[in-house]
């Protein structure tokens, strides 16, 4: 039973991190119907920026918690800036182009950013310090869940709640929902669609950066390629939940996290990814719009 619980929490942690990345995919898809293939790279840049800030501040001898907060802050700012710029360069000129063009452009962006980090920094894995301290009050439960995992879970929960509130109640949230439904109509009633799209990219990038910092400190290393695999997994999660739906992204991520965790825990770790993909294929075949997605029948 304890083993089950351990796997359950492991899956939950894993799923939370996927969720932070999947949010960006799902929000961007909801608004511009684009698979932002380079989203994983934003996450990677967030992690790398954080690592650089951490290294610099550590050498200056700063306090650990302060370093963590500042590094996360800088990572969020920079990832958002990259997300914003990426949209302006690679996607905005292609808004009226066929989707395939935008997808190829995204693939180009992804390759570019990977190699940009590879060339400007390094191709090696860089050690990433585990900055989250072991809290004292967690000691009795340490064999089940560690402090870093707890921080990941709490952070994800906070981000989700904030995001939901923003989309439900704020003005920009309303504008985002309007744009997602009908871009032309939103424009007609005075929504600044360009700004809405930019904000979507910025928010998606910011949550990805938070995910980047958390996962890097959890796993303990980063390199230029981490974005690709995490990106694919998060995308799978977003599609699983029903792409375009924010609760769907969270649910899809958790389902994927648990699936992987239980599968590797009880069956075999060799086929972990195979299983994740088979699961995806099955879900899409039997429920093409994802778990929470609405199936939109085409109007004839």
């Amino acid at each position: 039973m304890e083993y089950f619980f351990e796997l359950f929490l492991g899956g939950l942690t894993r799923g939370s991190i996927y969720a932070l990345i999947a949010l960006g995919y799902t929000m961007v898809y909801g608004i511009v119907q684009l698979i932002n293939f380079a989203h994983g790279e934003i996450y990677m840049i967030g992690a790398f920026t954080a690592l650089i800030v951490i290294s610099v501040l550590t050498m200056l001898g700063w306090n650990q918690i302060a370093i963590l907060l500042i590094a996360a802050g800088v990572a969020v700012v920079y990832s958002s800036a990259y997300g914003y710029t990426m949209e302006k360069i690679a996607y905005k000129p292609l808004r009226k182009a066929p989707r395939l063009s935008a997808l190829i452009s995204a693939i180009g962006m992804s390759l570019f950013l990977q190699n940009y980090v590879l060339l400007a920094q390094t191709s090696d894995f860089m050690p990433f310090p585990g900055l989250i301290p072991d809290f004292e009050f967690m000691e009795p439960y340490a064999h089940i869940i560690g402090s870093p995992e707890l921080v990941i879970l709490i952070t994800t929960a906070i981000v989700m709640v904030l995001l939901t509130i923003m989309i439900k109640f704020s003005k920009i949230g309303k504008a985002m929902r309007a744009t997602a439904q009908d871009r032309d109509m939103a424009m007609l009633v005075g929504v600044n669609v360009n700004w809405v799209i930019s904000v979507t990219f910025i928010i998606g990038s910011a949550t990805a950066a938070i995910g980047g910092v958390l996962i890097a400190s959890h796993i303990g290393q980063v390199n230029f390629y981490i974005g690709f695999i995490a990106g694919i997994k998060a995308f799978v999660a977003a599609v699983l939940g029903g792409i375009g739906s924010i609760p769907g992204a969270v649910l899809g991520s958790l389902v994927l996290g648990w699936t992987e965790s239980f599968f590797t825990g009880y069956i075999s770790s060799d086929y972990e990814d195979v299983f994740a993909f088979i699961f995806l294929v099955l879900i899409l075949i039997f429920r093409p719009a994802g778990i929470l997605g609405r199936s939109t029948a085409e109007k004839v």
């Binding site: 792409i243 086929y271 990814d273 993909f277 294929v281 899409l284 075949i285």
Partner: peptide, 25 residues
């Protein structure tokens, strides 16, 4: 047979998944 009733992006992601399944196997 199973995937062709999916549209656009879903087809893309399922074919992606299938490609990865074959390679991972």
């Amino acid at each position: 047979f199973p995937v062709l009733r999916l549209r656009g992006d879903y087809l893309a992601i399922v074919t992606l998944g299938f490609g990865e399944i074959i390679r991972l196997i």
